[in-house]
Design a protein around this nucleic acid. Sequence first.
DNA 1: TATGAATGAGTGTTCATTCAT
DNA 2: AATGAATGAACACTCATTCAT
Lengths: 212, 212, 212, 212
Amino acid sequence: MKKSEKTNSIEQKAIKRAQILEAAVKAFSRHGYHSCTMNRVAKEAGVADGTLYLYVKGKEDLLVTAFSHVLGLLMERLDKEIKKLDNPVSKLRRLMELHFEVMENDPDLAGFLQFQLRQPDPAIRAAIRTPLVQYANRIEAIVEEGKEKGTFRKSIGTRAMRRVIFGSMDETVSAWWFRQDGNELMKKVAPLMEVILHGLLINDDKSRKSEH
Amino acid sequence: MKKSEKTNSIEQKAIKRAQILEAAVKAFSRHGYHSCTMNRVAKEAGVADGTLYLYVKGKEDLLVTAFSHVLGLLMERLDKEIKKLDNPVSKLRRLMELHFEVMENDPDLAGFLQFQLRQPDPAIRAAIRTPLVQYANRIEAIVEEGKEKGTFRKSIGTRAMRRVIFGSMDETVSAWWFRQDGNELMKKVAPLMEVILHGLLINDDKSRKSEH
Amino acid sequence: MKKSEKTNSIEQKAIKRAQILEAAVKAFSRHGYHSCTMNRVAKEAGVADGTLYLYVKGKEDLLVTAFSHVLGLLMERLDKEIKKLDNPVSKLRRLMELHFEVMENDPDLAGFLQFQLRQPDPAIRAAIRTPLVQYANRIEAIVEEGKEKGTFRKSIGTRAMRRVIFGSMDETVSAWWFRQDGNELMKKVAPLMEVILHGLLINDDKSRKSEH
Amino acid sequence: MKKSEKTNSIEQKAIKRAQILEAAVKAFSRHGYHSCTMNRVAKEAGVADGTLYLYVKGKEDLLVTAFSHVLGLLMERLDKEIKKLDNPVSKLRRLMELHFEVMENDPDLAGFLQFQLRQPDPAIRAAIRTPLVQYANRIEAIVEEGKEKGTFRKSIGTRAMRRVIFGSMDETVSAWWFRQDGNELMKKVAPLMEVILHGLLINDDKSRKSEH
DNA sequence: TATGAATGAGTGTTCATTCAT
DNA sequence: AATGAATGAACACTCATTCAT
C-alpha cells in the first residue's frame, strides 16, 4: 500500500500546513504581527517552533502565505457564487454580502485582514499585492460588466468606482471590528449599496452629470 | 523681566516640541514605525535620545502625540475654510480637496497617516481613536447639514454616508501613495464626488429608494 | 550461504562507513566544522540525516572518527614506504615528501587536517590526541634512530627535534594552503630539509654546541 | 575644567575598551570562541551584553579586535627590546624568549593565540592576516639581516627559514599549553635555537650544502 | 537498516528606556 | 533642561538529535 501511504503522508502535510496558516491568522490577529512571537504561533498550531520553518521561510513569509491561503479560499467561494448571478448589481451585492459574512463569522480573520496585513514594510506590501490585485479585479470586472450592459455610468472611471466600493467596504468592516457590537455587519450591506448605487443626492438629474 | 523670560522659555519649549513631533512624522513615515528607532527620530529632530523623553512618555506616545499634532493643524485649517462655504456639497468637495492637497504636498505626512498610524496594537488604536473621531465628526456634520437642508437623502444613515466618503478618500490616497506617480491626486476629486453624489446607476429614479 | 551474506553485509557496512567518513572530511573542509551541518555531510555521503547516527555517536565523534580514519590510511602508507629505506635522513625526507604529497593531492583533506581539526574544544583535542601522538611517534622514531646511528646530535632532545620538524612542515602546509598557488608544495621539501639538517648558520662549528 | 573632563571621559572609554578586549581574550580562551557566548564575555568584562556592541561590531569583530590589541602590545615590546641588540642570532633568541615569556605569563592569552584564533572562517582569517603578517615580517627582517651580515646562509629562502622558526615556536607553545606542566616554556629556547641554528646533523660540512 | 519529519534548546543582536553628569 | 553611555529584556531562527515508520 505504498501509494496509499504516500497519499496519506501528503494529505497529512497539507493538513498541518493549513493548521499552521490558520493558527498564524488567529495569533497575528490577537497579538498583532509585530508583537506576536513565532513561539506563540507554534503553540497555537500545536507544533514546535522549528516546525514552522519546515512550512514557511520565516515570519514575514508566514504572514504572506497565510494571507494567500485565506484570500484564496475566499475568492474560490466568491467566484462560485457570483457565477450564478446575471446582473452586475446583484453581483456587487453578493460580493459585499460575502465579504461581510466572512468577516463576521471569523473576527480573527477580519482583524488579520484589516490590520495585521496593512504592514508598512515595502517587502510585505509587495508580496501581498498580487493576491490583493486579484480581489480588486473581481470588483472591477463587475463594474466593467455593468458599464457594458448599460447599468453603470460610463463617464466614471472603473478605478474610481472600485475605490469607492472597496474603500466603503473596508472602512465599514474596520469600524465594525472596533465596536465589536454583536453580529450586525450584514445589516450594513443595504445602506452601503444604496449610497454606492444612487449617490448622496436627492432628485438627482443624471443628465447633468455633475452638480454644477 | 521674569515674565518675558518665562514666556520665551515656554515658546522655546513649544518650538522644540513641534520640532520633535514633525521629526517623528518624517522618520516614522520613511522607515516605518516599528523599524524606526528612537535614535533616528532624535537625530532627525536634532536632539539627544534622552531628550525625547522630556517631551513624550515613550515611542507609542510619540506616535499618538505626533498624530494629534498634525491632525490638529489639518482640522484647524479645515474649519476655517469650510466656514466660508454655505452648501454641503461645496463643503464636502472642499474637505476632499483639502484632504488630498495636504497629502499631495507632504508625502511623508501621507505615508505617516495612511500606513504608520494603522498599527494593530490595540493600545495605539485606542489612543488614535479620539482625534480620528473629531475628523469623522467634521464629515458627519456636513452630511447632517445636507440632510437638514434637503440636499442629501434622509433615508440613509449618516454613518453609512460617512463611511463611504471617508473610505473612498482613504482608499484613493493609499492607491495614489503607492503608485507615487506625480501629483495627480487632486484630479481624483471630481470622479470621486461624481460617484458619491450620484451613485453608480444611470437613469436613477430616486423615488424607488432602492434597485429592487 | 548465510556466511557469505553476512560477510557481504559487513563489507557493505564498512564501505558505507568509509563513504560517510570521507564525505565528512570533504564537507567539513569546505564549509568549516562549525558551519557545516550534519545534513550537509549526509547529503555529501548520499544518506539520510538519521543514518549518520548509525555510524557515529554525534557530530564531534564524526570529526574525530574521520580524522582517525584518514590518519590511519596515511600512516599505513608511511610505514610501508619508510620500511624500505635504511638511513634516517632518507626516512625523514620520505616522511616529509609523503606528508606534502598527500596534502597536495587532496586539498580538502589538507584543509580538514590543518584547520577544521584544530578545534579549541578540549574534548575534541583530547580525542584527537591519540592518533596524533602516533604520527609524532613516527617522527621521533626516525630521530632516535638517527641519534643511535650517530647521524643526529645526541645533545638535543628528541622532542625538540620533533617539534622543529613537525612545526616546520605544519607551518609550510598552512601557508601553502592559503595561497593555493598551484602544486608547488613538493618544492618546499629541499629547502626545509636543508634548514632542519644544517641549521641557519654558515661555517658552523658543531664542537661549539652553541653560538656563545 | 571642560578639557580635563573630556580627557577623563576619553581615558575612561579607552580603559573600558581594554577591559572588554582582555575579557574577550580570557573568555574565548577558556570556553572556545564558538562555545563562548557574548553574555559570558560581557560578564567577564563586568558590563551588560549591549555594552559590548558600543565597542565592537559583533562577535567576529571582537575576536579580531582583541587579537590586534594583544598582538599590538606584544610587537611594541618586541621592537623596543630588539632594537637594543646588534646581531641577528641574539635578536632571534630574544624574539623567541619574548614570545615564550608572554605565553608563559598569560596562559589565557596563549590559548587564545594558539587555538581560538585559528578559525577556519575565511572572513576571520583575512581579518587576522594583517597583524599576523607584521609579526612574520619581524622574523623575516632578522633573517634578512643575518644573511646580509653573512651570519645566515644565503642559499635558503627567507620564507623557508621563517616557516621553520615560526613553525617550531608555534608547535612548541602548543605542545606546552596542552601539557600545562608548570612554567618550563622558557627552557625550550636553548634546544630550539640549537636545532634551528646548527641543524640536526653532526659533523656538518656546510660546503656540501646538502646531504647527498 | 534506513529514513526524514519533528523537535526545542540555545544565542547573537537590537533598541526603548534610564540616569549620572 | 539636555545629554548619550549604559542597560538588559526580548526574539527570530538554526540545527544536532530523535524516533515512528
